[in-house]
């Protein structure tokens, strides 16, 4: 019984850590936007990186994805999906962006 409540505490702590981390990152993103405005690419880069960080925090602490053996199958799946997704999104943006330039719908 004691072991169970110990495990319970541990698992709950993971969620709380994940929540705290995500909360901080969220607040950071919005304050950057508030303080610096959202016009420049530099600011957007920072926002993007913080978003990525939050994705990872949630994957680890909420979805329990890590390199431990038990969740490696899920990790493999997520990584492969990310690969496909990247191919699809980067390819699409590349192709359509290039077409837009050549059609003169956006200036270059």
């Amino acid at each position: 019984m004691d072991r169970r409540s110990e495990m319970h505490r541990r698992e709950r702590r993971r969620y709380v850590i994940g929540y705290g981390g995500s909360l901080l990152l969220t607040i950071a993103v919005f304050s950057i936007a508030y303080v610096f405005g959202i016009e420049t690419k530099g600011v957007y880069l920072a926002i993007g990186l913080l978003g990525l960080a939050q994705l990872i925090v949630q994957l680890v602490y909420f979805l329990h994805i890590d390199r431990r053996r038990s969740s490696r199958e899920d990790l493999d799946l997520v990584l492969f999906s990310t690969l496909v997704l990247l191919i699809i999104i980067v390819g699409t943006v590349w192709i359509m962006g290039n077409l837009a330039v050549r059609m003169h719908t956006i200036p270059m």
Partner: peptide, 8 residues
């Protein structure tokens, strides 16, 4: 894909 469409 919807993200990609939005970007384009």
């Amino acid at each position: 894909l919807m993200f990609a469409i939005y970007i384009t």
